[in-house]
Amino acid sequence: MSETTRTYRPRRDRVWFLRSRAYTIFVIRELTSVFVAWTIAYLLLLVAAALDGALPAFSAFAAQPWVIALNLVALAATAFHSVTFLNLAPKATVVRLDGWRVPAFMIQGGNHTAWLLVSAVLFWVVTR
């Protein structure tokens, strides 16, 4: 029902993500997705090489210093992404048992345990 009056609308803030620590961490988490994507592409290349019997060539590619450096960064980024993702998971999965709400730390703990177990199995498969 209101008549319009002149209001002040601030200009778009181009560096809004620097305004608070929470925003900055959020943006870093979003940026780590790029490395998650690279890791998936890298794995697909590995699988393709294995199927084509071109593993030696792939190994030579993987052994180059810049690829190793990239993968180290990607490992760190992916781990950061996974940890933060699993910590946020209870927000999307509310579990109630007979009215009692399973607390967030249990869901997070379950997620991290599952993640470690899968990692351990993969480690065993790869290194056996």
Partner: peptide, 24 residues
């Protein structure tokens, strides 16, 4: 995009971030 700041700001512990993720 799940920044989660809505929940931190909420003075009544509504946890809107949770509401949104659950509906996703």
């Amino acid at each position: 995009t799940f920044v989660g700041e809505c929940t931190s700001a909420c003075p009544k512990h509504v946890d809107p971030a949770e509401a949104i993720q659950r509906y996703k």
